[in-house]
Design a protein around this nucleic acid. Sequence first.
DNA 1: AATGAATGAGCCTTCATTCAT
DNA 2: GATGAATGAAGGCTCATTCAT
Lengths: 224, 224, 224, 224
Amino acid sequence: MADEDTRERILNVAGAEFAAKGFQNTTIRGICRQAEVNVAAVNYHFGDKERLYAEALMHAHHFRIRQVPMPEWPPGTPAEDRLRGFLRTMLQRMLGVEELPWQEALMMREMFQPTGACRELVEDIFRPHFELLLSILDDLLPAETPDHVRHQTAFSVIGQCVFYRFHHRILDMLVPVTELDRHYTPFELAEHVAQFTLNGLLGGSEIDATAHVETPSTLSEDES
Amino acid sequence: MADEDTRERILNVAGAEFAAKGFQNTTIRGICRQAEVNVAAVNYHFGDKERLYAEALMHAHHFRIRQVPMPEWPPGTPAEDRLRGFLRTMLQRMLGVEELPWQEALMMREMFQPTGACRELVEDIFRPHFELLLSILDDLLPAETPDHVRHQTAFSVIGQCVFYRFHHRILDMLVPVTELDRHYTPFELAEHVAQFTLNGLLGGSEIDATAHVETPSTLSEDES
Amino acid sequence: MADEDTRERILNVAGAEFAAKGFQNTTIRGICRQAEVNVAAVNYHFGDKERLYAEALMHAHHFRIRQVPMPEWPPGTPAEDRLRGFLRTMLQRMLGVEELPWQEALMMREMFQPTGACRELVEDIFRPHFELLLSILDDLLPAETPDHVRHQTAFSVIGQCVFYRFHHRILDMLVPVTELDRHYTPFELAEHVAQFTLNGLLGGSEIDATAHVETPSTLSEDES
Amino acid sequence: MADEDTRERILNVAGAEFAAKGFQNTTIRGICRQAEVNVAAVNYHFGDKERLYAEALMHAHHFRIRQVPMPEWPPGTPAEDRLRGFLRTMLQRMLGVEELPWQEALMMREMFQPTGACRELVEDIFRPHFELLLSILDDLLPAETPDHVRHQTAFSVIGQCVFYRFHHRILDMLVPVTELDRHYTPFELAEHVAQFTLNGLLGGSEIDATAHVETPSTLSEDES
DNA sequence: AATGAATGAGCCTTCATTCAT
DNA sequence: GATGAATGAAGGCTCATTCAT
C-alpha cells in the first residue's frame, strides 16, 4: 500500500527529473526531496541510481503507451489511413495535449545517449513500432523493395516526427510564436508529415524505383 | 605563443570531451590531463567551466563549417541540384567520412539541451542554414505557400538528416551491420533524402526522373 | 522452537562473520542474508548489534571448549605430561583439525581489541586456563619462584601457542608451503612448544638464578 | 614546504588513528579534523583511504625502526649477547619507553588482518628481522638442525615478545597493577625471554634433537 | 512472533574552484 | 604567466535501526 505508493511516487518524480536534467545532473537527493521520501528509499527499492533510471525509463514508456495507445485497424484499412493514425499517435505521444510530456523526453534522451537500459527499450518499444511502420510502408512501397530502402524510408518518417520533440527548443527560436501556437499541434503536424510522406512514396513511384535501386529491370517488372 | 597553443589544445580536447560525455560528465581534470596542462589552466584561460564550454562549442562549429563548406552555386543552378548539394554537405558534416566527427555531436547535444550558448549558436549557424534551405525550397514549392508550410517542409528535410546523426546508436541496433556498412554513407543517405523530399514536394511530377537520376558527374563536380 | 532455531542460526552465522571480518566490517544484513532471516530479526532477538556480538562471542567459546575439552589428569600425573596435554588442547582448539575454526579467531579478535564483552571472556575463560597453566608450571619451577616470574613464564608458554593462530597469515608468507604442510600440525607444534618450554624451565635450572643477575654489565654496555 | 608538512601531518594522525581503531573504524573525516586539513586533502595526496593506510603503515615502521634501531654487533660477539640485544630492541620498539607507541600497534593489526599492504611489510620489515634472528639462533642450535625446527624456534622467540604487545590488554586484567608497574619493562621482559630461550636451546641440546622428532607411542598414549 | 518498508546519519569520494607561490 | 596545493560543497551509497503491520 504505502509501498506501492512510495515506489510509484519515486518512479514518477525520478522520470521527470531524469527527463529534464539527464542522468548525471539528476541527484537522488533531489528526487527524494520532491517525492518526500528518505534518501535511502531509492537504495532500498531500486538498489542503485542506475537501476532507478532503468526502471523509471521503462515505467514511463509503458505508462505513455497506455495513455496514448496505437489505434487498432480493422482488416482492410487503407495504408494511407493507417499511416495517418500511426503518425497522429506518435506525435500526440511526443507533443502531448497540454504540456510536453516528460515521458517522451526521457526516451529521447536515452536514444541520444544510450545507457545499459537502452537495449531493452529498443527491443521492447522501439522495434515493435519500427516493424509496425514497416508493415504500413510495405503496402505503399513497390513490392520487393530492398530492405535498406524500406528502412531508410521508415527513418525518413520517424525522423520527421522525432525532430519536433527533440529540437523543439531550436524550433522555438526559429519560428515566430504566433505560428507555433497556431500550426504545430500534433494533428496538424501529423497531417503534414503524412502528406509529405505519401507524396514521397506515391508521387513518382515508377521513377522512384529506378532511382533508389541499381536493378531497374527487376523492379519495374515487379511493379507491374 | 605557448599561450595560444595551450588555449587551442584545451579547446580541442574540451570540445571532444564535451561532445562525448556531455557537460556535466566532463571533468576539468580530465580535459587538463589529456591536454597536458595544469588543472588551474582552464580557470586561468577561460575563467569558468561554462565559458570553456561556450568557447569550445563555437570553436568546434566554425572549424567544422570551414572543413566541410557549403557549396556555392552559380546563379541559375536548378533547385533540385542545390537541395542535393545542401543535403550532401549537411550529412557529410554530420557523418564525416571516416570517423564520426565530434564537432557535430557537440552541436547536437547543445540543440537537445540548450545552455546559454545556444542562442548564439542558433543565430550564427543554424538560422543561416535554415534560411538557405528555405530559399531552395521556395523554388520547389508553389508560390504563395504559407509560411508554416514552408517551415514545416524545411523541418521535414532537416529532421530526416539529423536523425541519422542523432540516433545512430538506435539505428545500429535496428539495422543489420551488413546493411549499415553498405548503404548508410553520407552520399547514399543524401540521395535518399533528396529523392524522398523531391517526391514529397512535387507530388511525383515528371521532372523528378530527369532531375536527379544518373548524376555522378555532378557529384564529383560538387566536391571539387 | 523456530525461535530457538532462528536464534541459534543467527548466533552461528554472526560468530563466523564477526570472526572473519571483525565487528565493524560485519553487517547485520549480511548475517541475516546468510541465516535466511529478516533484517529486523537481529534487533528483535538481540536488540543490538553489540549485544549480538557479545552473545555470539560467548556462545562460540563455550561451544569450542566443549568441543575440545581440557583433559582431566588423575592425581599424580607428572607435570611434563600435563603441560603437553595442556598445549595439545590449546593448539588443537586454535588450529583445529581440518579447517581453522572461527571460534578461536573470534576470541583472538576480542583479545586484541577488547569490547565490553572482553572482561567476561577473560574472567570466565581466560583466567581459569591461566590458573591451570600456573598450577602446572608450579610443579616445574623452583619453589618460592616469585609471582612475576611465574606469570611471565606462563606468558612465554601462551605466547608461543597464540602466535601460530594469530599470525598464521604472516607465517604463510615466511615459510615454504611444503614445510607448512608437513610440520605445522597442532600435535607437532605442541610437542615443539613443550620441548622448548621444558628445556627452558629445567634445562639450566641451576644457572637461572645466576643468569638473571649476571647481565647488568651487558645491559649498561648496550645502553652506552 | 606546506606540502611536506601537510602530508606528514596526515600520515602521523592517520597512523595513530588506524592503529587505535583499525581501518574500517577510522574515518577520513576524523583524521582530517585532527590534522586540521580539508577532507579532500587525503584524496589529493594519497588518492584513496587504502593508499593512505598503506603509506601510513610503511611510514610508521620506518620511523619506528629508525627511532629504535637494531644494534650492530662487532664480529665475534657471542650469540647470547646478540640474542639479548635483538630481544631488547624488539621489546623496546613494541612497548616503548613512556607510552605505548602506536606504530607497532599498527603493525600488529596488519599482521593480524593483512591487507594488500601486508606483503610489502613482510618482505621489507618482517623477513629481514626473521633472517637476523635465524642467524643468531643458528649459532645456538646444533649444526644441521632441520629448517622447520629452526623456524619454529624463531617463532617461539618472536611469539613470546609479540604477546606482550598484542595482548597487553588481557595482561592488564590478569596481573595485578603493582606487578605490572614493577616487572614488565622492556628490559626485564627481554631478559626473561632471553633466559627462557637460552635455557630452551642450550639446556638439553642433545635431548632436543630426539625430542623434536615424532614420538608416536607417547602421543597415542597421551590421547587415550 | 516476525517482517517488509522506511529512516537518518554518516562515510568515501569527486569536483570545480581558489590560493600562494 | 602558470602551477601545485588546498578548499568546501555535494553526491552516491551503506548501515544500523525503527515503525507499522
